[in-house]
Amino acid sequence: MPMTLQVLYPISDGTTFDDAYYQSKHMALVDEHMGAHIESQVVTKGLAGGPDTPPGFHAVATFVFADQGALDATLAASGPVLADLPNFTNVAPQMLIGQTY
């Protein structure tokens, strides 16, 4: 069954997020270290939480995997990607692992 990993970067007082670094350097690390196991990916930059409502997240990255084995392989290879977090944000990201249907 296909699996997903979502990485959410919530906005709160004092949080920072360097979108240019994230797009150019961090996602290149994702591709280098984890890309072989990822079927598809999309990153959503937070613009609003609804009409006239500020966004609740700087960004949400969604990765789709063929199965649990591919997700496990990606998580095992994620060390360099996780180590890069302080280079673009001071946010502790939230993660959601799920199944698609």
Rank of each mutant, 00 (worst) to 15 (best):
M3I: 02
M3S: 02
Q6T: 01
V7L: 11
V7D: 01
I11M: 14
D13V: 10
G14V: 03
T15K: 07
T16Q: 07
D18K: 08
D18G: 10
D19S: 14
D19R: 14
Q23D: 14
Q23A: 15
K25P: 00
H26F: 08
A28K: 14
L29E: 06
I38D: 01
E39L: 14
Q41R: 15
A48T: 14
A48L: 12
A48V: 09
G50L: 10
T53R: 10
T53C: 04
T53K: 13
G56W: 02
F57G: 00
F57K: 04
H58R: 09
H58M: 07
A59S: 14
V60M: 14
T62I: 06
F63D: 00
V64E: 08
F65A: 05
A66Q: 11
A66Y: 01
Q68C: 00
Q68I: 10
G69I: 02
A70Q: 10
D72W: 05
D72I: 05
T74I: 00
L75M: 15
A77C: 06
S78T: 11
L82F: 11
L82V: 13
L82W: 13
A83D: 15
D84P: 10
P86L: 11
F88M: 10
N90E: 08
A92C: 02
A92K: 14
Q94W: 09
I97A: 04
Q99R: 13
T100Y: 00
Y101D: 04
Y101F: 08
